[in-house]
Design a protein around this nucleic acid. Structure first.
Lengths: 99, 99
DNA sequence: AAAACATATTGACAAATGTCGATGTGTCGG
DNA sequence: CCGACACATCGACATTTGTCAATATGTTTT
């Protein structure tokens, strides 16, 4: 996939909503069933489903279906892409500081 | 400042718009005057001003006034906060993979 | 097959966001 | 002091986003 401005913005959409940050924080303690996430958040089931779609589309979360349950977990690859972008910004910017 | 979900989402607002990614990419090559950014983007001056406010509020960009010019540059501290959050997600999530 | 359950999709709606033109504010040069 | 300039703010508007209730889809159990 070509990494252009649009794609980069899409990745970071994962992190720019309060409820999605809550979801990511929960997932950081390991894979969770959608129903567990629903318990932890003050949103309805369709709203959770909506956020999970955005998180999966961004590549930061991966989904696994098991019978009628959906299990979600953080994607190390997705997080790496986000982290690497920040790393590039930091490093190319650093040399230019205090010029 | 307390780092809660709301603040975390605020930081990442910097990265979730296509034009702001363009601005950040440009700033990665060093401090730039607002007028230079305006040349590089296909937006009007008020729109640029709006994006610069969001970027500064998020802490990822810092502003320096010099006469009638505004100079913007990446904030290493701001980028570090964002990077550290991703690092926490990655590391706490890692141990739990393939369980 | 039917009922119960977990999740996704749809449609509606209010709020937030990105954008612009018009205008305001502060700064410099004459 | 005044005009020109750089940038910020305001008001308006269309689009996007987050949310919900209602409904659809797919799976398990009885």
């Amino acid at each position: 996939m070509v990494i252009n401005e649009k794609n980069t913005a899409l990745i970071f959409k994962a992190f720019c909503d309060e409820n999605r940050i809550r979801i990511l924080n929960i997932l950081s303690s390991g894979e969770k069933c959608a129903c567990k996430l629903l318990e932890a958040l003050s949103v309805t089931q369709p709203t959770l489903s909506h956020h999970m779609k955005i998180l999966c589309d961004s590549g930061v979360v991966k989904a696994r279906k098991e019978g009628k349950w959906m299990h979600y977990s953080l994607s190390q690859e997705g997080l790496k892409v986000a982290e690497e972008y920040l790393g590039i910004l930091k490093n190319t910017g650093k040399e230019k500081e205090n010029e």
